[in-house]
Structures are given as C-alpha cells and as structure tokens.
C-alpha cells in the first residue's frame, strides 16, 4: 500500500492570528513493505506529516495519495483508509477506550461491523502478535496494565483492524529499558513476519538506527534528508546542526576520530567499534 505525498503544506490554526506553518512543500513516497524512520527535533512536523498519511489530517495544499486514493477527494472512503493505515499514538492513555483489554482491542473490528467469531479471531490474533497472553489479559482491566503492556494493548487494538501500513508515533517514550526492548521486538516482528509497511517516528536515534531501512529527516517542516539509514548517519554534522543527538556510539567514534583513530564517519554497531579500535591499537602495538 504505497503512500505518495506531493507538495504538502499545512498551517496550524489557519486563518487566525496564531497561524503557524508546520509543513512546507513536503514530498515523500513510501513504498510497500518499507521500514521508514521519521526523525527531527521537537515541533519539526513529524506527527503532522504522519497524520496526513492516514487522513487524520486532510491536506490544506498539496496531495496525499494512499494506494491510489486521494485523501482530499470528496467521496474518498476515509474510514476504510484509516483501517488500512493504522496509527499508534505516543500516549496509550488517549487510545484505550474500553474498560478491559479484550473489549478495547475489539473496538476497531466492532466498528467495521464484523461477525462475532471474526472479531474474536482478530482479537486473539492481535494479542498473540504483541505477546499478550489471551487467557491472562483478555479480561484484564486496562488500568491494571504496566506502561509497556498498555502500549502493547494499543498496538494490538490497531492490529485488529488488519492494517497494511502501521504508523508508530514515538511509542517507546517513557518506558524503561526492558519495556522498550519488548516493544521494539514486536515492531520488528510485525515488519519482518507480517510484511507490514512501518512508518516509525522516534526521538531516539538509537532506535531508528537499529530498525529503519530508510530515514526521512524533518526540520521546521522541511524534509532535509531522505536516504538510506547508513547514508543519513553519514551526515552527522547536518543532524547535529538541526539539534538532533547522534546515537551514543557515534558520539564516541566521532571523538576518537578526532584523535586519529581509523573509524568510519557513519553508524556502525558496537561490536564493529570494538573490532576496529582493537585492530587500530593492536596493529600499532605490533608495529612498535
């Protein structure tokens, strides 16, 4: 389900003295099965851009075409479109509407007016995909969930609509390391096994670096870089200039490079770093 964004502009509170331009002439095409990371400093327009992708926001200027359907078209079936392009919000408290986990996950399928068995199947399947045990959690009170479990329930609620594209808007914020790992594992599995197209918004460069094939960098409503993950991190200076923090590994390799260590100017894994440093140092020691 490809998404084509052409010359998209958007202003917040258009027509009032508080008008603020959020997106300027954005062009982006997202292909089927891609894992694209959307990064940028706070208030750079990431969320606004992503919400155009499932017609939560209708373009003021420009076009957004999802699977051949223009979201600004008068008779476009936006309800169907939103089921196909799922959106998981940053804060799970805004997207859990029912008292129990099972009822909440069924919310989407119930809106689709599916049969009872079908709904039940979908809930069971969605819970399994996010690693919430059906027998334990189906009747569990939403408020009795931990932060990580709440987020998994929120993802399951979107999965139950059987989307082909999934937008994840900073879903690891506020989780502890273990909770974060669990969510990221779920996301990776959905991409690899279910072949879902993933649009992944995050403040954490480490997460994006680990997961995304391609990254679009937003700054003040402009897309300033749109390239493969490796190439994007090759432009470390540009990223830092707009106020992004590099992955921790890159900060260390960057400093070491200044002192003459032979390390590449892009993102490498921790093991690679260890390998290269030890080769560099031990080569020297042998040479002496």
């Amino acid at each position: 389900m490809p998404i084509e964004i052409k010359n998209l502009c958007y202003s917040y509170k258009q027509g009032t003295p508080f008008e603020k331009k959020v997106l300027h002439n954005v062009n982006l095409s997202i292909n089927d099965g891609e894992f694209i990371g959307l990064i940028g400093p706070t208030q750079s327009g990431k969320t606004t851009l992503a919400q155009h992708c499932n017609a939560l926001i209708i373009p003021q200027k420009g076009r957004v075409v999802v699977n051949g359907c223009d979201t600004a078209e008068k008779n476009a079936n936006l309800t169907d479109l939103r089921q196909n392009v799922g959106y998981v919000f940053q804060n799970p408290d805004y997207q859990l509407f029912a008292p129990t986990v099972g009822e909440d996950i069924a919310f989407g399928p119930v809106n689709q007016k599916l049969g009872r068995d079908e709904i039940n199947n979908r809930v069971r399947e969605a819970m399994e995909q996010v690693g919430l045990d059906y027998n334990i959690f189906y009747k569990r009170d939403i408020f009795a969930l931990s932060g990580g479990q709440k987020r998994r329930a929120a993802i399951a609620g979107v999965l139950a609509c059987r989307p082909r594209v999934m937008i994840l808007d900073d879903v690891t914020a506020g989780l502890d390391p273990r909770g974060r790992e669990e969510i990221l594992a779920v996301v990776r599995k959905l991409h690899e096994e279910k072949m879902l197209t993933i649009i992944f918004i995050s403040n954490s460069m480490d997460e994006v670096a680990m997961l995304a094939d391609r990254i679009a960098v937003l700054d003040k409503g402009h897309i300033i870089i749109d390239d493969t993950t490796k190439s994007v991190f090759g432009e470390a200076e540009k990223l830092q200039q707009i106020g992004l923090e590099l992955p921790e590994v890159m900060e260390i390799t960057g400093k070491l490079r200044e002192y003459g260590f032979k390390l590449p100017q892009t993102l490498i894994t921790l093991d690679e770093v260890v390998e290269l440093i030890s080769a560099d140092l031990q080569g020297k020691q042998v040479g002496e």
């Binding site: 919400q51 499932n54 939560l56 936006l78 309800t79 939103r82 089921q83 799922g86 959106y87 919000f89 804060n91 805004y94 997207q95 509407f97 919310f107 989407g108 809106n111 689709q112 609620g157 979107v158 609509c161």
Partner: peptide, 19 residues
C-alpha cells in the same frame, strides 16, 4: 488538545464522526 487526540485515535480505528 487531549480531546483532539482522543477523537483522532478513535477515527484511526474506524469511528466515522462525520457520518
């Protein structure tokens, strides 16, 4: 703002507020 977010989250899961 919170209301706006909740409405969006429900729209994203198939509630048609405009119908």
């Amino acid at each position: 703002e919170e209301l706006d977010k909740i409405v969006k989250a429900q729209m994203a899961r198939g509630v048609a507020f405009d119908r």
